[in-house]
């Protein structure tokens, strides 16, 4: 008896994913991208009458901003830096010789000023801070970006490069917490409309090392992070498709973000993993989107 092929295998065999040879790095078909676009639009629709400022950054960010953000204190294992050849003619010859011999050719690769964006909202905070104090109503931004996390995996829902659409709220603690509470409702309504099984749970980020255990315990004790989980590869370990994060004054202090009243701004974000929701849909409703239940198709295609 043959084993059921893995979800990754089925996605590739159905032509939805294109294998690149690197785990967690896939091409996407037009049919897959159509679903991504529809989920993306549904996420924006879920924001209702919210007046957001739409901002798009490339998937690489300023290294200085990245360094100051504190990301390396928490997640050094996930970060990806961009390196480039910075040698002279002789070094180039050497590089080609090493390459031809199948040897390590990276000796003259030097870090550039670019780091791969780890989360869509990271480049935003210094840009907002540079504008001066927030308006009395605070700030509300809509961001979407490919993000990178170095965690090669055969789980199609744990990619190294994937898209995250975020809404980011900046303001006083009341404004920011009201935003998060509202999105906890909106996220559940959206996933329910897609007829996906889900649960909501307190969560923590994958902080690095022993210090990370303390960070994670603190994050949970203060209920700073919630995730909306959908079972994809297992019922016991469902996959986070949305996260709802209250950063308290972390970014406010880091970037000197001020409210109109002159207080340190608090921030929160809600993020949707677009590929994860798409994969959850294909897993739940079948590999051909045309055959999905009428209600799901209506929720996405109208």
């Amino acid at each position: 008896m043959s084993e059921t092929p893995s979800l990754l295998r089925r996605l590739i065999d159905a032509g939805l994913f294109i294998d690149t040879g690197a785990p967690g790095l896939y091409g996407r078909s037009g049919a897959f991208e159509d679903v991504i676009d529809r989920i993306d639009a549904a996420f924006v629709r879920a924001a209702g009458d919210d007046v957001t400022e739409v901002v798009r950054f490339p998937p690489g960010m300023n290294r200085g901003v990245f360094e100051k953000s504190g990301y390396l204190k928490s997640f050094p294992q996930l970060a990806g830096t961009v390196h480039a050849f910075c040698g002279a003619h002789g070094d180039h010859m050497e590089l080609l010789e090493h390459l031809a011999a199948g040897e390590d050719w990276m000796a003259k690769q030097q870090p550039t000023e670019v780091v791969l964006t780890p989360a869509a909202c990271y480049p935003l905070y210094p840009v907002v801070a540079a504008r001066g104090p927030l308006a009395p109503e605070g700030g509300l931004f809509d961001l979407q970006s490919y993000c990178f996390r170095h965690e090669p995996s055969e789980d199609p829902a744990r990619m190294q490069m994937f898209r995250m659409h975020e809404m980011v709220r900046l303001g006083d603690p009341d404004q920011v917490l009201a935003f998060r509470a509202q999105w906890l409702e909106r996220g559940q309504a959206l996933v329910a409309s897609l007829e996906l099984p889900f649960s909501l749970d307190l969560a923590n980020d994958p902080f690095f090392g022993r210090g990370g255990k303390l960070m994670a315990a603190g994050q949970r004790a203060q209920q700073l992070k919630f995730e909306l989980l959908v079972p994809i590869h297992s019922e016991e370990h469902p996959t986070a498709c949305f996260s709802f994060n209250y950063h308290q004054d972390h970014f406010g202090l880091t970037w000197d973000l001020k409210t109109a009243a002159g207080e340190v701004a608090h921030t929160a974000c809600v993020g949707i993993g677009l590929e994860r929701v798409a994969i959850a849909l294909f897993n739940q409703h079948g590999l051909n989107a045309a055959d999905w239940p009428a209600g799901v198709r209506k929720a996405l295609w109208g």
């Binding site: 504190g70 210090g211 603190g218």
Partner: peptide
């Protein structure tokens, strides 16, 4: 004390 500072204190 921030959470990052608490890690520094622990170490």
């Amino acid at each position: 004390m921030t959470s990052h500072a608490s890690v520094q204190l622990m170490l």
